[in-house]
């Protein structure tokens, strides 16, 4: 287990390193650089001044050399400054990352619980009207675009009914109540969109498990339906579901970007969007690195969860 973790963390580090270079290079390939922007802002800059500035900022160096300089600084905890906000990027990213984790974390826990519950009920009541209604709900969730759903909710709950704020962040003095009110609509949007596919998958996994021999054994043992379900079926059904859940974690981050923008939620998605639109290269780069790191960590957690769910999987050991 320890060896496995070591390997996975090393692997994650390599992925991060590669990704940072790719992003760095892509940004470098983009037409224009920060100094072009500066020049556009001040048309009176002379070519001599430009050359001087380029040399001063190191923009005229080859890309590998610039990457190396950035990497050495980054490894020492210096991620540089944001061009627009004139603050260290870390100071901007940390609160945004916290906000995103609150939003996606709440949406993730809710959608997973809901999906597994609905999937299980649908599997147990297969072919009945309950199954059909759950299916309908799932398909509706899969096919509805999140921006449309978000707008619909803003219109309904904020404009028409006035129950919830249309967007933005809660002020500190509003406490937990304010947090919940501001979270409600973005979380609901994410949950509705994410639950459908997962519920269909959980249903299929549960149907598969219910047809297994050990469920027949559980029934032959005279267990109550409840005990059979909780003790024998659920854990086995969760094993394949976990794979999809781990994949969805990544999707949840990118899906959240749109939702964050829509509800003016000060999270990573919105920050990345602003950074790219505002040509704030350094901020965009570091934001993307943090998102990648979060996804990698989530995947390592999923792998650990596998071993907990399924004793047949032993990490780091090759099976016979």
């Amino acid at each position: 287990m320890g060896r496995f973790l070591l390997g996975r963390i090393t692997g994650a580090g390599i992925v991060l390193l590669l990704k940072s270079f790719v992003i760095f290079a892509l940004i470098g390939l983009m037409p224009g650089d920060p100094l072009d922007l500066m020049m556009n802002a001040n048309p009176e800059t002379t070519p001599e001044q430009m050359a001087h500035l380029r040399a001063m900022y190191g923009v005229d160096l080859p890309i590998t050399q610039r990457y190396w300089t950035w990497l050495v600084a980054a490894l020492q905890g210096d991620f540089g400054y944001s061009r627009i906000q004139h603050r260290p990027v870390l100071d901007i990213i940390i609160p945004a990352l916290g906000n995103t984790l609150i939003l996606t974390g709440a949406a993730f826990v809710l959608s997973t619980t809901l999906a597994v519950t609905l999937g299980t009920i649908a599997a147990l009541k297969r072919g009945t009207w309950i199954d059909r209604i759950i299916n309908l709900f799932a398909f509706a969730g899969i096919s509805v675009p999140s921006f449309w759903l978000g707008l619909l909710m803003i219109y309904l709950f904020a404009v028409r009914l006035g129950w919830l704020p249309a967007g933005g962040m809660p002020r500190p003095e509003q406490g937990y109540g304010g947090m919940l009110a501001h979270l409600a609509m973005p979380v609901m949007t994410l949950v509705i969109v994410e639950t459908g596919g997962l519920a269909r998958y959980a249903r299929a996994a549960m149907i598969e498990v219910l047809s297994q021999d050990y469920i027949r054994t559980a029934r032959a043992k005279g267990l109550t339906d409840r005990r059979m379900l909780v003790r024998h079926a659920l854990r086995n059904a969760l094993i394949p579901v976990l794979t999809l859940v781990a994949l969805q974690l990544g999707g949840l981050f990118s899906g959240a970007a749109l939702t964050e923008a829509m509800f003016a939620w000060r999270g990573m998605g919105r920050l990345i969007l602003e950074a790219i639109l505002g040509n704030d290269y350094n901020l965009a780069l570091v934001c993307l690195m943090f998102v990648t790191a979060t996804i990698l960590i989530a995947n390592i957690c999923a792998d650990i969860a596998y071993t907990w769910l399924d004793p047949r999987i032993s990490l780091g050991k090759r099976r016979r």
């Binding site: 297994q212 021999d213 032959a220 043992k221 005279g222 024998h232 854990r235 086995n236």
Partner: peptide
């Protein structure tokens, strides 16, 4: 009937690998 199952009448199956729950 369920209470009879397991208590008064029990059953064993052909394939003990699949008849036992793999994760318990």
């Amino acid at each position: 009937r369920r209470q009879l199952r397991g208590a008064d009448m029990a059953m064993i199956f052909q394939e003990p690998m699949t008849a036992l729950n793999p994760v318990v």
